[in-house]
Amino acid sequence: MNKPKIALYWCASCGGCEEAQVDLAEKILDLVNLVDIVFWPVAMDYKLEDVEKLPDGSITASLINGGIRLSEHEYVVKLLRKKSKLVVAYGACSAWGGVPGLANLYSREEILKYVYHEAPTVENPQKIQPQLKIKAEEGATLELPEVFPRLLPLDLVVDVDYYIPGCPPTPDVTWKAIETLLSGNLPAKGSVLGALDKSLCYDCPLNETKPEKVLIKDIKRPHEVIADPSKCLLTQGLMCLGPVTRGGCGALCIKAAMPCTGCFGPLNEVMDYGGKAASYFASIIDYSDEEEIKKVLGKILDPMGIFYRYSLPASRLRGKITVMRR
């Protein structure tokens, strides 16, 4: 019997998505009963050339995590696109750029300079920096993939059929999404799999504790307060992005008294997650005086890091203008 073929790949990501896949635990066994995994660099010993040899369109679905930052990422995802019926952006980085996407606020040169020379933990007296190509002493030419000037989400590089949200997607969401993919009953192209079409508040056990009007006088960072776990965190001044974030995670952070940071990304009707998040959050600052408003909003030390934590490369501007210009 011919089982559907699945490929799993990672681009600019942290490995958390692989962890989440491994966290399927015994369900992994169910999975391998249902499908043949033909490519999974983190766990299985297949080579890229094995994929290159597969007939076009022979992979049922490729689940790709991480944003596209290197020429190698671009090569592999284009290859997987060619070989797959469905391409699925797995996790926040692949869908919208994720945390590594915040690097779009800096130029490639600034990043390399910092990472190889300036970061406080770097010891590099010979000022070595990776090169695209070097001739080794033994005479062989060694090559490294190119770092692109900016990070892009997967769907700006190849056509993407579905998205699985989360940083990382929870095992539950992952399993639901796989079930959908294998069901043969596929939703409309571009759909988000495994999650809700409503925001986290819908799923949140604390939603009912909100007062009639949700307005706040002060902003608190998580380390500054011991949050009351039985009361809506937002109304306690914590910057919970639950209202602007897709539900489906099961409100895991909230249940640990930590505010939502937005890893399930925007809902379908939102065009710029950070713009919308900032709009909603600024709206509830309960002052009318410009100076008071500035003072309270000033407590958000890093608005880009807060509101675009997972989605800068998918935002309307994609990153810093000077980085985006060509």
Binding site: D197, K198, S199, L200, C201, Y202, N207, K210, E212, K213, V214, L215, G242, P243, G247, L267, N268, E269, Y280, S283, I284
Partner: peptide, 15 residues
Amino acid sequence: VNEEICSGCAICIGM
């Protein structure tokens, strides 16, 4: 309100 999307987060009420 699009009830298919609204999560009942209540932000609108304070506006």
